[in-house]
């Protein structure tokens, strides 16, 4: 039985599907399911946002999702089932950017795994967010460096977390 599902959804072809995530992490022996859904906000640092574009390096992102899932399983429990999916491409306000779901026998493992996974996806997967503003301007989020050598001098992550 596969305990992890990792996916990158090309927005031009399909949307993220929370119902599929719930179905994947469900099990007759599971009493706890936690889900995190990240959606596109209409405001970033006081500026009105028209939409977001996500750039992703898929081979490495999927490899990283798998590592993140394995780490969460190690930390939160061997029975855990995890669903990790991120959108790729241009998204409008309110659209789903990321869906994380965790199922387990009890709620504590599910909550902890869900939180651990979304934090790891945000800060360690090769994904980049470009804000598109209603005034026509656009800007890449400052982000978190994946280079350990630069961490000491890294500027803190963008306010649009």
């Amino acid at each position: 039985m596969d305990l992890h599902y990792c996916d990158i959804a090309e927005r031009a072809e399909r949307c993220l599907d929370p119902a599929a995530a719930l179905e994947f992490v469900s099990d007759p022996g599971f009493g706890g399911v936690a889900m995190f859904i990240g959606r596109v906000r209409d405001l970033n640092q006081g500026r009105k946002v028209d939409g977001i574009r996500y750039d992703i390096y898929p081979p490495l992102a999927l490899a990283r999702f798998q590592e993140i899932a394995e780490q969460a399983q190690h930390d939160c429990g061997p029975q855990l089932k995890l669903y990790i999916a991120h959108a790729h491409g241009r998204l409008a306000i309110g659209e789903l950017a990321v869906v994380i779901a965790a199922g387990s026998p009890h709620r504590d493992e599910a909550f902890r795994a869900c939180r651990q996974v979304i934090e790891a996806v945000k800060y360690s997967a090769p994904i980049w967010k470009q804000e598109h503003y209603v005034d026509g301007d656009s800007e890449w989020s400052e982000g978190r460096s994946l280079c350990e050598d630069a961490q000491a001098s890294a500027v803190s992550a963008s306010a649009h977390d």
């Binding site: 360690s124 980049w128 994946l146």
Partner: peptide, 22 residues
């Protein structure tokens, strides 16, 4: 790959600016 590691023999690499998923 970290700065002290060897370049891959196939010569193909990707540069990853600071990330901002989610």
């Amino acid at each position: 790959l970290r700065d002290h590691q060897a370049l891959p023999p196939d010569g193909h690499m990707v540069i990853l600016p600071p990330v901002s998923g989610g």
